[in-house]
């Protein structure tokens, strides 16, 4: 990661992991910590505005709130979970909104740091998801039933099962939260690094480098930075969506009944 720029000009330090270590603002509070609080406030305020005076024919805010809620409710929860989906809609919607806002902080001017480029909260949220779907599975099937549907491929000889069951156990019970969190963290981390590279690189080319050629070429670096900002916006939305969709799918999987 630290050597992404293929031929750094003399004196150029390509951005690396150390750029993600942000200095504390006061006490132990760093920028991501404030972002987490801000994200929660933004989400709550927007949703409260949406239901300030609920009407059958919605106003603009209410319409947007309903649309957001409706996407999670009808496109994610209903498809992934099935008949008992309604109880999980609040958790999934809150999760989607919280992750989405935190991700979008990566391209919002003056904030410009995706909170989940630090892995702590993705770990925590994935653990919460793991606890939720494990608990739902055990409640629905009992402990044995839950382990059976998660690790017991049907209709295979016992010696095949000896091989397959550990794989499913690892995949379904251990790796799910790991991949869930690392997918989110990795995308945010790499995306932010990419933007840093273009912007800091352009800055260096324009102000620091001696070469006139680099100064002339610097707008291209900034242009690429802008292009990738839009690309990142897309990635940030998609990653929030995937996190929630997979969460719903895990819940749906542990709720699926025998046939």
């Amino acid at each position: 990661m630290t050597t992404m720029a293929t031929a750094p000009a003399p004196g150029f330090e390509s951005p690396g992991v150390e750029d993600f270590q942000l200095p504390p603002i006061f006490g132990p509070v760093t920028k991501p910590v404030l972002e987490l609080v801000l994200a929660a406030i933004i989400v709550v305020v927007l949703f409260r505005l949406a239901v300030r005076k609920p009407q059958l024919v919605p106003g603009k805010m209410q319409f947007m709130g309903e649309s957001f809620h409706g996407i999670v409710r009808n496109s994610i929860a209903k498809d992934m979970i099935g008949k008992a989906f309604l109880g999980y809609v609040p958790f999934l919607t809150a999760l989607f909104a919280f992750i989405l806002v935190n991700n979008l902080f990566g391209i919002i001017p003056f904030i410009q740091f995706p909170t989940f480029a630090h892995p702590g909260v993705p770990y925590a949220l994935a653990l919460v998801v793991w606890v939720v779907y494990t608990w739902v599975g055990i409640r629905h099937h009992g402990l044995g039933g839950y382990i059976r549907i998660s690790t017991w491929p049907p209709d295979v000889p016992w010696w095949v099962r000896i091989i397959l069951t550990p794989i499913e156990f690892l995949s379904n019970i251990i790796l799910r939260p790991v991949t869930l969190s690392l997918r989110l963290f990795g995308n945010m981390f790499a995306g932010h690094l990419l933007l840093l590279l273009f912007i800091l690189g352009g800055e260096y080319m324009l102000f620091t480098a001696d070469s006139i050629l680099l100064k002339i070429l610097s707008p291209f670096a900034f242009l690429m930075g802008i292009v990738f900002t839009f690309f990142e916006a897309f990635i940030q939305v998609v990653q929030a969506y995937i996190f929630v969709m997979l969460t719903a799918s895990y819940i749906g999987t542990v709720l699926a009944d025998d046939h």
Partner: peptide
Amino acid sequence: VEIIVGLIAF
């Protein structure tokens, strides 16, 4: 700190 604040905020 992020984990604690993040979980509480969420």
